[in-house]
Design a binder for these strands. Structure first.
Lengths: 352, 352
DNA sequence: TTGTATGCGTTATCAT
DNA sequence: ATGATAACGCATACAA
């Protein structure tokens, strides 16, 4: 009745070999004779030993095999975005060969006691779609020697970034709309802060936007329409888009003839709201999206949008992590989106 | 130029206190005089010490603060389901007070080298929507003394399960459909295995279904319609439902007058396919779902469905983990779904 | 309230 | 190919 779980030392003793040899049998780092290996395995199964304790191995090797993925907002809203899911999947694939898994770390710990970047045993951190608020946290993490990679954001000096051409791409969409003759244009954005609410964006708010992606895409829009109004959705979802669309098309004022949305989901919601309001797309109102995802059930519409390489983002981040862990200094990478014209944009209607 | 990162021992020395005192200052487990605390903090910042190394702390305490969440399939398809997202979010909230975070573990390691339940430093594991294939893995994990909780599945002897009344609830829907007079009924299911393809389910396949949820709901359907046909979707999504619906309503044979789908997303897809085929819902065909989620853009339809307590599932699992970690033996819990009649079901059309 | 002493379970280094 | 040894960095029981 030995309550204690057997250790590798017990196994070694039972097998009549040294602890280091037993260790090597399990790790396979050094050649071992077949006879020895068998002795050790026998001893292990006799004792019910199931392999090295990951915690002890972590300490000794200085590696836990865990990579923290930090994202803004709640899991539900983060994973509600198909782009994020694709990216995360690609990231998981990319770090798996390193023997690493993904630990979900929620920014701004929703609940007290929750592990943070500073208290979790992570080998590296990937920041994705985070607000700038995290910047200070980041400093401590880096000071600790934990490699950091940022996806679409600014990590500061020496932090590799996987960037997307958000501003240029969004500008491209805005130009397309402008070239079609539209003048009454509204931007529909993702949240400006992770705790922010839906509503028209004031100049102040626009200046202090802390979500990098939102800010960058809005800047691209501003390059073409410096004075147009912008409305923030509560998140990136069809429902949020519908809510925004109802406000935009609901007022008595002349409705906009074009809406430049920051995501396909928002665009799909706006489109639906436009239909609700009795407007035809694209005859009465043009709508552009961003992401290039397949929006369930949007047919027969096909959004005019910017197709972004979601999986490539995850892969690039994974490769950067691998390089950092190998002691290299990977360069930042920059991915580009592709403009795709669908059937949701058309010439501005004649002034009525 | 000391390359080595400072340890708590260095801090203690610098502060002129013992290592244990310094440790206590950081963990807060024991009262410390203000003066001492300050001395230690000063020394720490002077040395650039940022707190205890989580890896070493893990080993010493025997806890890593990490809970493995095992799910079938790829991240993308798992998190594509709103129910799963809600459950995961609630789970994350529930374990946060324990100081624990969630490590994503993919069943059947998609990529070689990926950490598994046996190699990751986890304190507990939560299995959610897994296939029975995992059963053997589970044995080793439990042998290791790692607590396990299963959400909607069978963990075997002594494993607390958070169950949903899948079978009874699905039976409820089937009865509703039968009571409306429907006889040509088809079940539309989630995948029967995680690697399975879409298609009519053969008797063999039905018997060997390894995804518990799929099997349970199908059994509930069978309680009422033992001989009806069943068609598996490639996953739980609107698109999968559309694909299934096109087959179901596309043939020359008389179309079914009712479809009992295993999820709301599948139901929504089937509904769309029915419309495509020129059928009216519910006059020509009745459709039921399962989950009770809000399906973006399904209005004006409101699915007849079973509303399941998604967040409660996550909370219950979190509480069970907490109890296990506290050395208790939590009982399994059983949650119930609520039948909600929408406007997608109606009397069977008269025989034509 | 603080200090002393020990061991958590492993693996890397080096020698044999 | 195998063995002896020494950390890895910390938190706890216990003593003072």
């Amino acid at each position: 009745m030995n309550a204690r779980r057997p250790t590798i030392a017990d196994v070694a003793r039972e097998a009549g070999v040294s602890p280091s040899t037993a260790s090597v049998v399990f790790s396979g780092k050094t050649p071992v004779s077949d006879a020895t290996r068998e002795k050790v395995h026998d001893a292990a199964s006799r004792l019910g030993y199931l392999g090295p304790d990951p915690r002890a191995a972590s300490l000794r090797r200085g590696r836990s095999g865990i990579i923290g993925v930090v994202s803004g907002g709640r899991l539900g809203s983060v994973f509600g975005d198909p782009v994020m899911r694709t990216t995360m999947d690609a990231l998981a694939d990319a770090v798996a060969p390193l023997g690493a898994g993904l630990l979900l770390v929620r920014e701004g710990s929703v609940v007290a006691g929750e592990p943070t970047l500073l208290t979790a045993p992570i080998d590296a951190a990937v920041l994705i779609g985070c607000s700038g608020l995290l910047r200070e946290h980041l400093a401590s993490v880096r000071a600790r020697g934990i490699p950091v990679v940022v996806i679409e954001g600014d990590g500061g000096e020496g932090v590799p970034v996987v960037a997307l051409d958000n501003r240029a791409a969004q500008r491209r969409a805005a130009e397309h709309v402008r070239d079609l003759g539209h003048e009454r244009v509204v931007a529909v954005t993702m949240p400006t802060r992770w705790d922010s609410e839906s509503g028209w964006i004031s100049a102040d708010e626009e200046r202090s936007t802390s979500v990098d992606v939102t800010a960058d895409r809005l800047a691209g829009f501003r390059d073409v329409f410096p004075d147009a109004a912008a409305f923030a959705g509560v998140d990136s979802s069809i429902d949020a888009g519908v809510a925004v669309g109802r406000v935009i098309f609901g007022g008595g004022a002349p409705h906009p003839t074009a809406v430049v949305a920051q995501t396909d989901l928002l665009a799909a919601g706006v489109l639906r709201a436009a239909e609700e309001a009795g407007l035809r797309v694209p005859q009465d109102v043009s709508i552009t999206g961003f992401d290039g995802i397949v929006v369930d059930g949007l047919a027969p519409y096909e959004l005019t949008t910017l197709v972004q390489p979601a999986a490539a983002k995850g892969r690039a981040a994974g490769e950067a992590v691998a390089a950092l862990l190998a002691g290299e200094s990977p360069a930042s990478s920059s991915l580009t989106s592709m403009f795709r014209e669908g059937n949701t944009t058309g010439p501005a209607p004649a002034e009525s």
